[in-house]
Design a binder for these strands. Structure first.
Lengths: 222, 222
DNA sequence: CGACCATTTGATATGGATCAAGCGATGTGG
DNA sequence: CCACATCGCTTGATCCATATCAAATGGTCG
């Protein structure tokens, strides 16, 4: 790990250097909309670490974030977060995962304590908490389903998910390296690579570069 | 499936025939405590079906319940529920899984609509919703971790989980058949059986019967 | 240009699935 | 009460998808 000044940057409160983006709100944007401008992070920067107190709750404004935990000799990527998605909310006091940017990103923050105390009185804030937790639950359940499938199916599901959550266009951009995809799907980078070349050979996808793909819709299962 | 009168029984509202149990409450028992007496179900009885409107929210008072969805030619068991655990809460309007008793069970119910409408005003009810959703999230995340492990490790984790959630004693009772364990752990019954005999051969467990085990603590990983 | 990193490709090993059969317990009908 | 079917579980033999080990290729940056 090429730690620059990550630990300093991960400490709170983070520096403000981002440009204000006119946040195209999805459901519970309320709290973030009236927030201060988002913070900008370079690629591969630690946002918070597993075990640190969860003082903030985060919204991706641009870029891509991964959360992961270090297993026993292996990294398990729990989720990727794209613009208009939320992360860093914990049931307990501390972060159960580490969060890093994948690419350079703008990240909005709210103080967790403010949100939690508001939720004790305010049903709007309470609903936001419930909504975000429900989204996390659905994601975890989808991942459970995915992990029971073959490598080929996992890849297809993964690419479909990226496509849906990003532009929705046929041409997609994978912001993360193969190793991230492998750690997320519970595979090795070799298997990910082979599954991709197989999709390429069957004309299911085209590869402009290793990170830019065109999905020939509909992706044929197996 | 030896359907007796399951569809009739699954329809709402369910018959009352249980005895009142003095519910030894865990955290959010409030709503269930002031409820009517629990309903008793025989073993392998459908409580609700995937796709049905989610009119009730349930608490296991005694026995054991499984929830599952029918995949593509395979059944995926999402969770087992033991006494003092809650199930049947859905983010949407309909049940996303089917729930069945594993053994004869007593089940408490509350009307979902009452709970949800109360949550809109009442932060106590809102917190119950959040708490239960958070428990479900943690369960789903634990399952994600589990599914990345070897068959042997999955079995060990599973047995430990049963032990922790039931009596906490060394001798445990598996209420479910091997096929349920296999469907939950993403394995085949043969692999489950082999993993168990291996644990037996290494004296990690003793088998009184195929359903009653003694865990020699601590269970040695691999 | 050369070092480094990400990706691909090839050869082999292996854990778990699949196919098949046997075994013990439980229940049912003759 | 016994013969037999059924069901849940175990055990064995073989196959296959994916991991592992190894090496080549390509891209980026100093």
């Amino acid at each position: 790990m090429l730690a620059r000044n990550q630990s300093a940057l991960a400490s709170l409160p983070p520096r403000k250097s981002g440009r204000l983006r006119p946040s195209n709100t999805s459901t519970p944007g309320i709290l973030f909309d009236r927030m201060s401008e988002p913070t900008s992070y370079p690629a591969n920067e630690t946002i918070f670490r597993q075990g640190e107190p969860a003082e903030y709750f985060y919204a991706v404004k641009s870029g891509c974030v991964r959360t992961f935990s270090n297993h026993n000799g292996g990294r398990r990527i729990q989720a990727f977060y794209f613009p208009n998605e939320y992360f860093g909310l914990e049931a307990g006091e501390d972060h159960s995962v580490t969060a890093e940017t994948v690419t350079a990103s703008n990240i909005g923050l709210v103080k967790r304590a403010a949100l939690v105390s508001r939720a004790a009185r305010d049903t709007v804030a309470a609903n936001l908490l419930l909504h975000v937790t429900t989204m996390e639950l659905q994601h975890a359940q989808n991942l459970n389903v995915l992990l029971l499938k073959s490598a080929h199916e996992r890849l297809v599901d993964f690419l479909r998910g990226i496509q849906r959550r990003c532009q929705g266009k046929d041409e997609i951009d994978l912001p993360m390296p193969r190793s991230d995809i492998a750690d997320y799907l519970g595979l090795t980078i070799e298997t990910v690579s082979r599954a991709l070349t197989r999709l390429k050979n069957t004309s299911t996808i085209s590869m402009l570069t290793s990170r830019r793909l065109i999905l020939r819709s509909p992706i044929v299962p197996d």
